[in-house]
Structure formats: C-alpha cells, structure tokens
Amino acid sequence: MNAESSLATDVTSPRPMLDMSGIVKRFGANEVLRGVSLQVARGETVVVIGPSGSGKTTLLRCVNLLEDYQQGTVAVDGEPVGYVMDRGGQRQRMAEREIAAAREKIGIVFQSYNLFPHMTVLQNIVAAPIRVRGIPRPKAEQRARDLLAMVGLSEKADAYPARLSGGQQQRVAIARALAMDPKIMLFDEVTSALDPELVGEVLAAMQQLARDGMTMIVVTHEMSFARDVADRVVFMDGGVIVEQGAPEEMFASPRTDRVRQFLKRYNDRYRI
C-alpha cells in the first residue's frame, strides 16, 4: 500500500471501516458504556458530542484498546481489534503482538498532545514508522516532511516539542499519527487544552484531512466543527448513543429532549 492510497475514499466497498458492536465498559460497579454499537463508513467523518461523563472519550479509547472493555467487539476494515469470537461464541483476547499490529491501523490524537519530549518534531514523527513498521529512515523522513508541510509546520522539523505552542504541538501529533498510514483517525477533544486563538489552526488541519477522504471519529465540544465538517453527528449520554443523524437535521430539529436541552445549554453559553 502506498502512502496516498490510505487517504483515498473507496466508495465501492460496502464494508464499514469501523464496526463496534455491543461495547460494554465498566469501571468497578460504574457502567460507563452500556452496549454501544457504531459503524463508520469509509471516508466518513463522525463527530461525537455529549455532556462530560457521557462516555464519548471512553468509547474512542476502546477502539484501539487503550481502554479495555468487558463485552463487545471492534473491527477495523473487517479485521478484529482486541477480541475475536471463538467457535463456542466466547470472546478471546488477541495476543499483545496482534493488538500492537492492529493499533498501527488506528491513529489517535490526544487532548494533551503526548509528544515525546526527548525527540525533535521530526524524530517524533518517524519513530514509529521506522521502529514499528521497519520503513527505511530516508523514506520515513521524506514522508514526515510531507506531513509537516501539510499541517503547515515545515520549518519546525528540528525543534523540540517544549519550544512549540499548544496548537503547533497538536498539529505535530496529527502528523505523527498520520505517519503510520492509519485507516482511521480518532480525535479525543484535541482542542480542549488549547488557547482559543490556537483552536482554528488545528481544526483547519482536521478539516483538510476530512476533505482528503480520511475516515475520522472526532470527539469534541466545537459545535461549529460538527456542523461544518461532520457527515454524521452522534449524541451520547449516560453511556449510550441517544441520537444520531446528519448535522443539519440534528442541530435544526433534534428528535429527543436530551439533545434539545444539551444544544440549548450550549447555545446559551456561546450564543451561536
């Protein structure tokens, strides 16, 4: 597979890029995900909204098994991630090696950037391609520079993360995830820790990515991003998906009270 093909939309295949079914996640007695199922089509951008504590970040972290879950399965492009069903219908956890391999296909960007502080921007981006996928260094670096150009940070290749603004660090984190040529990108409240004037540059990079056909799940509080970029908006509350649909429909005429209340509170606060 070459570097560009993973970004291209393959509309001919009916198989969803991500298939989560019946995910149940408990922290002790507290059930934070209560049987969530979500399919994401190839090239689709799904924005997940909902009040804090609704389980949306946990759902995202279950996709690549940063968070373990007690029931349900996840598949990316038809390949299981984390658990497979054996002949008797029992869930079996995959070997660590297989889980690590599955994670390569799933890019994630965190709220707190999580760049490696002891590596330069370029080293951050090429570390996993070289050491995990065995890509030759010159090729990995070329790809890294292309990605840096894409997020508008070509001149920062040799800077250390501590020297960058939050918005710049977050764009590097996006480039780092893309360098593994993932089939799907997960964004976990990536603008929540940023100063307001830095939010725009990160959202612009994400919008570009969506336009290029990347399959994306975005957990965010940025309603304007949901309205402008999402193909589908998913509203979560209390560990379940309450409502989902096209953004224009959901924002204009929500079907449930909970969504209506959530949007009203949001609008009262931000006056949009």
């Binding site: 391999a101 994670r103 390569e104 996993a128």
Partner: peptide, 21 residues
C-alpha cells in the same frame, strides 16, 4: 502514563516502547 499510551497507540510493543520512548 500518557507517554506509554502514545507509544502503544502508535503500535509500539513493550520493548520498542521502553527503548525508544
């Protein structure tokens, strides 16, 4: 712990994660 998480999310296995991150 976030550093471990970031490495794991990039598909690093235990030894690679320890050695390079």
């Amino acid at each position: 712990a976030r550093q471990y998480e970031a490495g794991r999310a990039l598909g690093m296995r235990r030894w690679t994660l320890y050695r390079s991150v």
